Simulated scan of single mutants.
Amino acid sequence: MKRQVSIGLAVVLLVAVAVAIVTGSGDDDAGQATTVRGVIGSEKAAFFNDQRVIAAFGKHGLQVRVDSAGSRQIATSVDLGGYDFAFPSSSPAAQRIQRDRGITTVYTPFFSPMAVATFAPIADLLTVRGVVRKGPGDYQVLDLAGYLDLAGTRWDQLVGNTAYPVRKNVLVTTTDPRDSNSAAMYLAAVSFVANGNAVVNTAAAEAAVLPAMTKLFLDQGYTQNSTEGPFEDYLAAGMGKTPLVMIYESQFLDRQLRADGSIRQDMRLLYPAPTVLSKHTLVPLKGRGDQVGKLLSTDQELARLAAEFGFRTSDPKPFQQLVADRKLPVPADLVDVVEPPSYETLERMLDAIGKQYR
């Protein structure tokens, strides 16, 4: 009889332990994963959809599900009512959301400088003309002042150009300035140079630079509303379609770090001088959105994974160690960085350019 009781008690204890293992979920008191919904800039979709990232959030009892949209769309036209957090790719877009919703708390867990993806023959052509030069390391720099002097000239008008003698203008391909943050960051950088190397901060300065800035966008023709579009064209269609494309550094590095063959030997990444940092800013809207922001800002595993997707984090060590191990020609620190105009100024310029599309 005593043996039967002992066996019965042992079975009960084993079942209890098994239940505890199955239902235990770290920080989640209920033992169930809580679904948290967010809307993000498209360049972060691969990060959030990665199984390692999903598992890292799962350790804290969260199941994070995301939709993608252009950062300006997130701030201006996306219905945020069904989301727990918004995660655009810039602080100006986040400021708009904060202002509209009276939110004071934000998180900036990682950032990425704006860069220009191109090809070796194009980089060589621009090097001869002094528009591209070597940086302090092995990386290459695109001088924006020299680029603006050349913009509008046809490629086939460049003397001695046999590598890319096409009948279209020298222009960086961007996204649609009405929808996307990367286009806004491009505008911030080129308007700084066009304004005599000063941030545009007056109505007079806006009026002075807008005609040239508008032309840089309108002369491109059709533009897409997310950086994934032109970057995928760059990867798939090659030099003929997009010889120069404005992207986030993280997009290029993400593909290099994957080593999936999408970044070929003739592809190059140029760092504009000056450049602008795209500060990926998470705005918690409700529920567990705040916890997602905290985890992205403090969890070491998530920071390491962010670096593997090409993002620079507040702790520079994971990113710097990764690019050093892979021997990637990436600047450890960026010096020639400018701030974008104020939210109001940038919005006015973007709206003025957007009206010209109609």
Rank of each mutant, 00 (worst) to 15 (best):
P88I: 02
V199F: 02
M349I: 09
Q251Y: 00
E301V: 09
V131T: 14
G152N: 01
L277P: 08
K355A: 07
A163V: 04
E344S: 13
Q356Y: 05
L277M: 14
A237F: 10
T153Q: 06
D67C: 10
Y164P: 05
E206M: 10
T242W: 10
F87Y: 13
F48G: 02
K355L: 06
V141Q: 07
A75I: 07
D254L: 11
D260H: 09
M114L: 14
V128F: 02
L302F: 13
F57S: 02
D266R: 02
N169Q: 15
R326Q: 11
S42K: 10
G130F: 02
A93E: 04
V17C: 15
A352Q: 05
S250M: 13
L62I: 04
G135Q: 06
G26Y: 00
A273E: 10
T35V: 14
A203R: 08
L144Q: 09
S77V: 08
F319A: 14
R358W: 11
A33C: 09
A306K: 14
Y83L: 06
F217M: 01
G61I: 05
R37N: 14
L62R: 07
G354I: 01
P113I: 02
A259M: 03
G82Q: 09
R288S: 11
M239H: 08
A183K: 00
A123P: 02
D156A: 08
R304G: 13
D176V: 02
S90G: 11
T175W: 00
S25G: 11
G135D: 01
G160N: 05
Q356T: 02
D79A: 12
D67Y: 11
K134H: 13
T105D: 09
K327Q: 12
G24I: 06
P121A: 01
S342E: 13
T104E: 14
A188D: 03
A198E: 09
P341D: 15
F217A: 00
T76S: 15
G160M: 00
L328G: 12
D179Q: 12
G31C: 00
T275Y: 06
M349C: 11
S180K: 04
D233P: 10
G82E: 12
G8E: 10
L270I: 04
T127D: 07
A352H: 00
S42E: 06
L235E: 05
F47E: 06
R358I: 10
V64W: 09
A204M: 03
D179N: 14
L218H: 13
T214S: 02
V106K: 15
A56T: 00
P121G: 01
P341A: 15
L235W: 01
V128E: 06
I54A: 05
P341T: 12
M246P: 10
N197E: 07
T242D: 15
A115H: 10
A273T: 11
V106N: 15
D233L: 14
G135F: 00
R268I: 07
L150H: 12
R312K: 15
Q98S: 06
T345C: 11
E206S: 04
D179K: 12
E232R: 15
R312H: 14
F119H: 09
P340Q: 14
